[in-house]
């Protein structure tokens, strides 16, 4: 029994890690992409809002890919070999972004604008590549004109989601001029993100018959309705709140961030439903790709012990650095 359930458990863990990555590093990458729009003082402050967190946030993608390797070694090879180029370019983006945090304050002052540029370029490149990878993955890693266009579409929209996450994060962590800028950036990001959400919802069933077959049958359609509905409500709330200045200044900016997270969670659940039980659509199910039960049990013990601890000390770190980031620097 437990042997049969193990692949499902690990699919859940992998989904959790990937979702945590998109939500947490998503705001880091979003702030990185917004960097050129700020002046020098604001740049320092924007980076101060993410500096204590980005490293741990990035670790979630290592866990996600790690679980892919641990639990589904057959799929790990297929997926990463197919995505060779976007993965490689994404890695170079993440390298540039990660080292720029340190170099911008440690290299000579004259190099600073270069490293700020690297932080921006790295964040943008990584975001676009992640979108591309997601698109290629949803279309079953097969290359044709329609699939390529679809991947391109997601490559252009995932950055918009990250920018909205970044703007929402800045609304929580900053005040004054930068806060007002964050609101404006948020407003601008909602438009491409809205178009993207709409196109994606329409395009996904068109490019993938398997996914269409899962969604548009009775009674599944009714059971699944909360997913698109909550996304629409969250999206409308974001749009409404971004124009309610008094509410935002009174400290309700976090709702924008929370609603964006909700959209991520719902999209993640929708995606998991679309894929299940495949790990590579149309080619490999999670049972076919799964590692040996002894190996999975051995890791599951580790996950059961460490994952709650990781979540607990992550919460602890967020608690230590809570509040407006200005205080971090000049308290």
């Amino acid at each position: 029994m437990i042997d049969q359930a193990l692949p499902i458990i690990f699919m859940f863990i992998m989904g959790f890690a990937m979702l945590a990555y998109v939500m947490l590093d998503g705001y880091d990458l979003g702030v990185g992409m917004l960097l050129p729009l700020a002046d020098d003082d604001e740049k320092d402050l924007m980076i101060a809002t993410i500096a204590p967190f980005w490293d741990a946030n990035e670790t979630w993608i290592v866990l996600g890919v790690g679980v892919l390797l641990i639990a589904f070694p057959q799929a790990h090879g297929i997926v990463l070999t197919s995505l060779y180029l976007p993965v490689t370019i994404m890695l170079m983006g993440l390298i540039l972004r990660g080292v720029a945090f340190d170099f911008r304050v440690k290299a000579e002052v004259s190099q600073r604008s270069f490293w700020d540029g690297a932080l921006f370029a790295g964040s943008l490149t990584a975001s676009i590549c992640q979108g591309w990878m997601l698109g290629a993955y949803i279309t079953g890693l097969t290359v044709n004109v329609v699939n390529t266009m679809f991947s391109g579409l997601i490559a252009l929209t995932l950055p918009a989601l990250y920018v909205l996450l970044g703007a929402g994060w800045l609304m929580i962590k900053t005040e004054g001029g930068l806060f007002r800028k964050a609101v404006r950036w948020g407003r601008a990001a909602t438009i491409p993100m809205g178009i993207a959400l709409l196109l994606l919802s329409v395009a996904t069933p068109i490019v993938s018959e398997e996914i269409a077959a899962k969604w548009f049958v009775m009674p599944n359609v009714i059971g699944l309705l909360p997913i698109p509905l909550s996304c629409i409500v969250a999206y409308l709330t974001i749009n409404w709140l971004l124009y309610k200045r008094e509410a935002l200044e009174a400290g309700y900016g976090w709702i924008v961030f929370a609603c964006t997270l909700l959209i991520c969670v719902m999209a993640g659940i929708g995606l998991a439903y679309s894929l299940y039980p495949d790990i590579v659509i149309g080619r490999l199910t999670i049972w076919e790709a799964a590692a040996a039960p002894e190996s999975l049990k051995f890791v599951l013990i580790g996950v059961a012990v460490t994952l709650p601890a990781i979540i607990a000390y992550t919460a602890f770190v967020y608690k230590i650095f809570q509040g407006k980031a200005t205080k971090l620097s000049y308290d």
């Binding site: 741990a56 290592v62 390797l69 070694p73 590692a291 002894e294 580790g302 996950v303």
Partner: peptide, 27 residues
């Protein structure tokens, strides 16, 4: 995979998150 996966997995679970999270406090 049945052997390298768990060893790498334990590295991520017991080390990567620990060092990355407390590095924030350290710095």
């Amino acid at each position: 995979g049945n052997i390298s996966g768990p060893l790498l997995g334990y590295e991520v679970l017991t080390a990567f998150f620990l060092e990355a999270s407390f590095l924030g406090i350290m710095l």
